[in-house]
Design a binder for these strands. Structure first.
Lengths: 256, 256
DNA sequence: GCATCCAAAAAATCAGACAAATGAAAGAAA
DNA sequence: TTTCTTTCATTTGTCTGATTTTTTGGATGC
């Protein structure tokens, strides 16, 4: 019947997910939020599938998904256990989303911004040397879109995405593109809900324009600097942007 | 429809892999090597499982693995199709291994070294500011191991790994650590077999020592520079280290 | 002590069925 | 004709229940 306009979103969870997908997401968020710790042994397939009231098939496929992302390992006779943290594919888009689904760990968010700053500013430098006219056109179009609609609208955020996508395409490096799109998606989820707290955080257009002009001028160092500043400013729009003075409060229980 | 792709590899190369694991690996390498192109529709589950002489369950679990890594998407009625390249999780360790399993694409290898240079040299700079005495001890021990055994032995390669692992731990950034370990594992697979061509490529100890000394002296810029040089030298040990003069020969068919 | 064999437990695999989703064709209404 | 609705067929999705394989730990024997 009604094809669109889900005004009151009851379940923000994507309904497009199948049963095994939802189980994987639930278990994944449980692992990333610490409900299950590395080394913990999950209950057996039969018991788990009965508790979740799903078939063993669906549960097993969910476990395969988690295993593919390095979160769990299963062996006959011993069972399925949560892998140690160094096995986790932390940069997998789904794992990233699960890690920041609830209340994001601020240390983790800082680490993610640190990586983003490193990679995307270097990407800007590469783009400055390799960009074509097509890339410049796309970036320019995106900046105009960000100016017309603001970041408060879906169209404006899409334009912001388009800008970064075009810049990454210009690097001609598929790994950098793959990495950055996933990281930015995760960062954006933590940034979105700021919009309903404060009216408008800042105007992102000038920052992007500086990056664009440096890339257009084939000024690698300038592009790198401008992108780094852009990311630093974006960090201000995330929860508690200040660097926690004692960031050493880390988890130390990697095994067991 | 009939692609006539005889994946007739029945023997599991690595014994630890289960049936679904081997199927996922075979299909994954077929996708990464271009046997199946983005947009291609895989044969249905019943037909595929019959052709491979496995149960539908095992085949489906393999598909779930590939879907978890962004390589395929399945929908009822339409089937399972290879996703467009921008959906692929290129930095997933398995995907990386599959991409470089056969004869690695040299452009791709160059892109991977480019990313490695960006991230790991930045990691060295971070490590120089955050390292503890424990990290220094580990790195020193690893360097001694590299000196005693050479890279021609398994123990020597393990020591090399240990050095980089200790440096990544010193960054206190789990994302950088997760990224780099996966990338280095993939790079090493392309580097290993050089050992049976040439006797000994070079002595890696001085390069690592320079990195270590800069990190120990908390010299961030020096550590970054030393690590970058180390990676550039490591690139010389990979197939055709010279930069191809015309690296623009790229795939242009990203959609469809 | 040490190696070998045995048994239990859990995942792994199999077989066959039914359910749900979806794209396209067929039909009805404008 | 065009557009909307309905039906239908196809493919993945889910379920049930069984058998097989792998692995661990202990019993056995030397």
């Amino acid at each position: 019947m009604n094809k669109l306009t889900p005004l009151g979103r009851k379940q923000p969870i994507s309904k497009a997910l199948r049963l095994h997908g939802t189980i994987a997401r639930d278990l994944g968020t449980a692992i990333m939020s610490g409900v299950y710790q590395p080394g913990d042994l999950l209950t057996g397939e039969v018991a788990s599938s009965e508790r979740l009231e799903v078939s063993r098939t669906a549960y097993r496929e969910a476990i395969r998904i988690l295993a593919a992302k390095g979160l769990v390992e299963s062996k006959p006779k011993v069972g399925t256990k949560v892998s140690s943290r160094d096995k986790w594919h932390l940069l997998d888009p789904d794992v990233l989303a699960w890690a920041f689904e609830n209340e994001p760990d601020l240390d983790l968010l800082n680490s993610l911004f640190e990586l983003r700053n490193i990679v995307e500013s270097a990407a800007a430098a590469l783009a400055a040397t390799r960009r074509s006219e097509m890339h410049l056109k796309k970036m320019q179009h995106a900046i105009r879109g960000m100016a017309r609609f603001t970041l408060a609208t879906e169209a404006g955020r899409q334009a912001d995405q388009d800008f970064h996508t075009a810049l990454l395409q210009a690097t001609e490096n598929p790994f950098i593109a793959s990495l950055t799109t996933g990281v930015n998606a995760a960062v954006n989820t933590t940034t979105v809900f700021k919009q309903r707290n404060r009216p408008l955080p800042r105007d992102p257009v000038p920052d992007h324009m500086r990056v664009f002009e440096a890339v257009a001028a084939k000024n690698a160092a300038g592009a790198q600097k401008a992108m780094s500043e852009l990311i630093q400013l974006a960090r201000l729009d995330t929860p508690t942007p200040k660097r926690s003075p004692a960031r050493r409060a880390r988890r130390r229980r990697d095994h067991i």
